[in-house]
């Protein structure tokens, strides 16, 4: 019954737009640093760049988060934790891969303990290149994800 009501509600185009608008502008990010892009994570969240303007607030509890930044390289030991963190997050959830290391292994292309690209373990929505990417690039990544969410919803 509830499912039926939900579906009928979602068929209204305007309502769907409102839902997606809400989703896109409150992407809280989970705090899990995997690599060396960590200080830029702090820089983009704090005073000068302040991604909270775009609704991305770093939050300690993963149960209330919708976005995960994979900051830099992912080692095989961290990969298990990353997957566990991703699985515990509630739907809908999005992944942004930050830096060359998260995209394709980057500088650690021949390392025995680094996962060659985080898309081997998680479905990635947006890739942000750089080593590390500037905070402006992080913001661009967030904006791209917001646009993606807005388009994604209308197709359904």
């Amino acid at each position: 019954m509830l499912e039926k009501i939900r579906k009928s509600f979602m068929n209204i185009k305007l309502l769907r737009k409102v839902f997606n608008w809400g989703r896109a502008w409150s992407l809280w990010s989970v705090h899990l640093e995997t690599g060396c892009c960590g200080p830029e994570d702090m820089a983009r969240a704090c005073a000068r760049f302040d991604t909270e303007r775009f609704g991305t607030l770093p939050f300690p509890t993963l149960r209330e988060c919708d976005l995960i930044f994979v900051t830099g390289f992912v080692t095989k030991k961290m990969a298990k934790r990353l997957k566990l963190t991703y699985e515990q997050m509630p739907e809908p959830k999005y992944v942004i891969a930050i830096g060359h290391c998260a995209i394709s292994g980057g500088l650690w292309w021949d390392s025995y303990s680094v996962v060659q690209g985080v898309d081997e373990i998680l479905p990635v929505d947006v890739y942000v290149p750089g080593c590390p990417p500037r905070p402006e690039a992080w913001i661009q990544g967030i904006r791209m994800l917001q646009e993606k969410i807005a388009k994604e919803g209308l197709k359904k």
């Binding site: 060396c36 200080p39 961290m78 390392s111």
Partner: peptide, 29 residues
Amino acid sequence: GYTHRGIEKLAEKRTYLQNLPVIERVNSY
């Protein structure tokens, strides 16, 4: 060990000049 990349081993595969960015990321924080 969550961020172990094996830099000491990787350094043996690269030349002295190629090692510069690798060494730097030991403490790139």
